[in-house]
Design a protein around this nucleic acid. Structure first.
Lengths: 327, 327
DNA sequence: CCGTAGCATGTTTACGTGAACATGCGCCAG
DNA sequence: CTGGCGCATGTTCACGTAAACATGCTACGG
């Protein structure tokens, strides 16, 4: 900066003013400074700036392995929304979802140069974790239920599960079987509860729940079981990947989809429309979730006002994996 | 820090030494300082530290939309490898893969607090872009070919494509059709070239190339065309998602897989084993690519030594979508 | 018994920036 | 004509840290 000041025959303070786009600089002086900055290849030092202002213009994101489709889409939206607001994203990975790892991530967090944090971690770990997040650091929780402690943004899981279940019932199925996600997942629990309450509200029987781990492979395993049961005519799986496994199991068992069995997924991943048959599913608006969580966080960072919880609605996408039950 | 020093009756410098784990501090003093740090909830200020040391302990990652399966896996591995080395990841998203956006990202980069950058962007954009990366900033390029300007780490695309093509030929297919990725993609080009040269090496005809855009939907479109052609008995698609679309098209056309037509993909995404039928494909080791790119980058950051290019081998995963051609 | 080496610790300083305050000049109202 | 006001610009200083150098004490060999 000093070099630029010398080159442009001004003081460092004036360079700073130009660099920050203040308007109380004479047009001619500004030009001279800009020319000098360009000539010398000047780049503001973000560390010094952060030290002086106390703002890092960066948002931390704590998340487990990115390999979950939904997390990735959410992260993508967060990154874009943050960039639009002039913030960058600092990833704080948690390689294994154990309590210890989460604690380590939180600890590391306190030394990270971030103005706020978005946490995309199963809530039960948050609850069990006695590690305290650095005080005064704004936090937004996604896909979880720590709403009592922090603002939360999430897909309206219950709404989606109800849409899926009611769609199948309205086609004439007597009841709907459910392939749930892992017990410890809050979103899996929400979907399962909404499925169950929807069945009860319509006076349908509630069949036993089959539990997977979100993977297509686990969907295949429980799908083999469902395929053997001739009573099963409608299946709601808690995500699209498990639906893929269920479809494969049904094909292997020679049960026609949707002729004999209808299947509905959850997520609407890009590939779902190319499943065989194309999958009827509940679309989640991950982009919206990411956008809103950044909005919420930045509001707290910049104005100190803390918002409440926000749920993002879902949409049922009807494709070709659902039909009326066999006569 | 001053508060901690006062609390522990030592100088700030001693606090700094404890904070950095230097060993030239008396055990008793260290205990006293640690106690004071804990009591006061002291957290080192990373901005000041970065200002003083010139190191940010952060790696920038420039990438397009995360929604590509492979990029995500790579990013995940980068994040974990970086965390292991004590670095965090700063994401610099490029919402749209246009020249302008890339320039903006590079510009933004120069103000980011990073010690080095990993670029996961189609190389043709790098080549066309006249934006100069900040001089002196270590760069590693992934999934691209700017090897002449920067070290590169990538999957051995040609090796994988050869494995896939030879697998089909060795099953007895007269030739292999290819569904390529977009023309401007270097990895798509490499796979296509290797497929073609493998066919030639084996004296097989080279059928016309069909081009998709990596999406399962585009795979479905070109798949419909292939399904109509009775000469087609073996298809190598440039990624698994397009293979999914091709499978769907073949099902719709009533052509048995692998009875009439064999299909091989590329990537080995988690879902591929649950396709119908489970997909024979070329596995990419994204984790290895990510790990190596961090290793290469940090070597340059910390020792100034710049390495060369590294290719990561692939592995053919034979499942149930390939068989001998019909008699 | 003294000189010195080695070690724990303290003091000073600079990293690059922007806020706060200071300066100097031109212009306008009284 | 003069006092004061507004505006562009300059000067000073502190943000929190760690490197470089300084200090003072202990221990050990000649």
């Amino acid at each position: 900066m000093a070099d630029v000041a010398r080159e442009a025959h001004v003081s460092g303070q004036t360079v700073s003013r130009v660099s920050n786009g203040r308007d109380n600089v004479d047009a001619e002086t500004r030009e001279r400074v800009l020319a000098a900055m360009h000539k010398l290849g000047y780049r503001p030092n973000s560390a010094a700036r952060a030290l002086r202002t106390g703002r890092f213009h960066s948002i931390g994101v704590i998340m487990f392995t990115l390999s979950s489709f939904g997390n990735m889409r959410t992260l993508d939206a967060i990154a874009i929304a943050a960039a639009d607001a002039g913030y960058s994203i600092t990833l704080i990975p948690v390689p294994h979802p154990t309590l210890g790892e989460v604690s380590v991530a939180f600890d590391r967090l306190s030394e990270e140069a971030v103005d706020g944090v978005i946490i995309i971690v199963e809530a039960h770990l948050l609850d069990e974790s006695d590690v305290v997040l650095p005080a005064g650091l704004p936090v937004v929780v996604v896909d979880s239920t720590a709403a009592d402690r922090y603002p939360m943004v999430d897909t309206d899981q219950a709404h989606g599960a109800r849409l899926a279940t009611e769609h199948l019932l309205s086609l004439g199925h007597r009841t709907v079987w459910h392939v749930a996600g892992p017990e410890r997942s809050y979103s899996a629990t929400h979907r399962r509860e909404a499925w169950e309450s929807t069945l009860r509200a319509h006076g349908a029987d509630v069949p036993p729940v089959l539990v997977g781990d979100w993977s297509s492979e686990s969907g295949h395993e429980v799908g083999l079981e469902l395929a053997r049961n001739p009573d099963v005519t409608a299946i709601f799986t808690a995500n699209d990947q498990m639906a893929l496994g269920v479809l494969r199991a049904l094909h292997e068992a020679g049960r026609a989809v949707p002729g004999e069995v209808s299947v509905v997924g959850f997520d609407d991943m890009e590939e779902s429309r190319s499943f065989w048959p194309p999958l009827t599913t509940v679309r989640q608006f991950f982009g919206e979730v990411g956008r809103l969580s950044v909005e919420e966080l930045l509001q707290e960072v910049e104005s100190g006002e803390r918002g409440g919880s926000t749920l993002v609605a879902t949409e049922l996408i009807v494709r070709e994996s659902t039909a009326r039950p066999p006569a």
